[in-house]
Design a protein around this nucleic acid. Structure first.
Lengths: 140, 140, 140, 140
DNA sequence: TTTT
DNA sequence: TTTT
């Protein structure tokens, strides 16, 4: 009885980092910028442009395709879900919010390859998600 | 050239906290839970249910309506955008990710009031967003 | 390089019609109403409430679950895609636009069954879509 | 208590037609193509690529900006709602489904103008919608 | 902290 | 034809 859906269109901050875990499970991390235009309110206040940086995580097929086709500056459409995880540093609990990608689409220019990336649908939930223990071991 | 959109359906964790800032500017904060069902992978691994808690922020008219109609347990449809802000504690920079609501819909049961909440569209961007300095002063 | 996505929250007009085609392929059809509230413009014009009726089509597992859990009046969240097909009557070509459901969620009241429907994710594209010839034969 | 939302990313079929009605109310019509890639099912059946053509309608500011910046081939992100209207021809009632745009974003190449189009948010509902009688008179 |  |  829940929906947790994110839709982003933005530009990649730098080339994805892709790691291969046990059993060749691929995971890619990169950031995506979305920018809201600035504007002036009716009362004359200037609200400046604002850029939001999203931490994107892509698994398996989407990670492999990120490695091949996504570069710094790429314009992407991403569908995914919000997930916040906690970690400790110096005994202090901290939180990081990430977007787990279900779908990634390269926008703008068409890719050059003969077999172009275009719609990359995630595998079914059962496949895209690492088993719990594997997730615990992720070297984030 | 950007899209930053979140769509959530979930349940409210506790009654909203509503504050009135300068000029009767209302802001509401509450949490919304979205729960993914657990499942068993093909290889027999049990993936447990997982609840994600989202920090929702609603301004002005949406804040006032939150105060009137939203309660712990309410099932809501929310559209909004992701926004991460930083703050310092003990000299350490920390980050909080929030969902700024643009639209809130009460689902399920019909509200009891005579004048029911149903579709609460946010005012235009120019109106819903606090001026930058006001935001800096928010007692989050 | 395309996105065709529909998100609806509304109420079912009447009980779904479910048919079983060859190989027990299930397909469900039902209508979903979304209602925009009326309002008065700044210049004093009354814009009345407006109801839009969407033709929903659900395949396979989603069709079977529609048969079990969806009834006239059910409040649903649906994700899907728009698809228009043409047909002929009296030598005149006509068009019908339908929403092919990828995800259906029952909102509001909890279902009564022991094994409740809640998130019904569609099978992967490869599975949910009838083969072309099968589609040609559908008795719509 | 309803949501009627469409999200499209696709390419414009031909230059928008823009008309100016009474009081300089602008309305633009154009088509947008979304294409699903073909694939082969597990049982070896080839499902061909499929293109869906959407009839887009944009009002007021969005219509004016369509006239200036949108051309045949433009890649767009559109948010809007589904609306079906009926009309008669030869005494036969027919139906047309259209997408009323709330947001249009030009994707890909950045626009050349100094003051670039990028996010074009629709005016509030009260403003974007033609009064009922005006709509009745639309020369569609 | 919700809900199923 | 639903729902508010």
């Amino acid at each position: 009885m829940s929906v947790n859906k994110v839709i982003l269109v933005g530009n990649v901050g730098k080339d994805p980092e892709v790691r291969y875990l046990e059993k060749n499970l691929a995971v890619a991390n990169f950031t995506l910028a979305t920018t809201e235009r600035g504007y002036t309110t009716q009362s004359g206040i200037q609200v400046p442009e604002r850029t939001e940086w999203h931490n994107i995580v892509a698994w398996r097929g989407l990670a492999e395709l990120s490695e091949k086709y996504i570069r710094k500056g790429s314009q992407l459409y991403i569908e995914g879900k919000i997930q916040t995880r906690s970690w400790e540093k110096d005994g202090i609990k901290r939180y990081t919010t990430e977007i787990f990608a279900d779908t990634i689409q390269l926008l703008g220019k068409k890719p050059e390859s003969t077999e172009p990336l275009s719609t990359v649908a995630a595998p079914p939930a059962d496949a895209i998600q690492a088993p719990p223990h594997a997730e615990d071991d992720l070297p984030f």
